[in-house]
């Protein structure tokens, strides 16, 4: 009972803090100077209509690289945590004993999988033009992989190949960053490729390339994480 009272007290105090925040909050009437800078400079300098993708891939590109590294470390640490202590025995039995998926799931997956993967690819490569980008599209692709694994539980994912793809995408990403350092203003500066026509599919310098690499990398990493959890 004492514990519950402390929980009530903690939640009430936090609620008090949050109420103070909401009470003092006034909706912005105009952009802050930094935001105004981004909103005007992303289309003008980078030629990318989607301001958020422009920020994520150029000004915050180093941070995005670190984020992908975090995802990689999570995949590796989950592999370490969920490693089978005793190879064979119970592990092999568990995989064989998995019951097959139902008719509806299997048929639904056959219909939906091409759509999901196509949509994921669309979101990845249109990241500079409309809402989307590497992370979002990669997550969609990984959700398709998850449906695939649910529909055929006995299937195995080639994690070695996914690891190679993921590493290659990471290396290419860093290479593009170094190209930006050599040919343009700094590390991960996408302006070393021509800006092209504003709003066209091939435009905005290296942003679509970086976005595609990011999508491949995130999709592969999330698929590996999903696969680690089911074994």
């Amino acid at each position: 009972m004492m514990k519950r009272a402390f929980a009530v007290l903690a939640v009430a105090l936090m609620a008090l803090v949050f109420m103070g925040v909401i009470g003092d909050y006034v909706e912005l009437q105009a952009l802050r100077p930094l935001a105004r800078h981004y909103v005007t400079e992303v289309p003008a300098q980078l030629g990318a209509p989607n301001v958020v993708t422009g920020i994520l891939i150029s000004w915050r590109g180093f941070d995005t690289l670190g984020e992908v590294a975090v995802l990689f470390m999570v995949a590796a640490s989950i592999g370490l945590l969920l490693k089978k202590d005793s190879a064979g025995g119970a592990a092999a039995g568990g995989r064989d004993a998995r019951p097959p998926a139902g008719e509806i799931v299997t048929t639904g997956a056959m219909v939906l999988l091409p759509l999901i993967f196509t949509f994921g690819a669309y979101v990845i490569v249109n990241g500079h033009l409309s809402a989307g980008g590497g992370f979002q599209g990669g997550a969609i692709v990984a959700s398709g992989v998850m449906l695939m694994l649910v529909a055929s539980p006995s299937a195995t994912l080639n994690t070695a190949l996914l690891g190679v793809i993921e590493s290659a995408a990471g290396v290419l990403y860093v290479c593009l960053g170094v190209l930006g350092l050599v040919l343009a203003g700094g590390f991960l500066d996408p302006r070393f490729l021509p800006k092209g026509q504003f709003g066209a599919f091939i435009s905005a310098g290296a942003i679509p390339l970086i976005s595609a690499l990011l999508g491949v990398k995130v999709g592969a990493e999330l698929s590996v994480i999903i696969d680690r959890f089911r074994s």
Partner: peptide, 14 residues
């Protein structure tokens, strides 16, 4: 303001 949106993409991934 695009800055909070860009930060939240990071926050979701982490």
């Amino acid at each position: 303001d695009p800055v909070p949106s860009a930060l939240v993409v990071t926050a979701i991934v982490i």
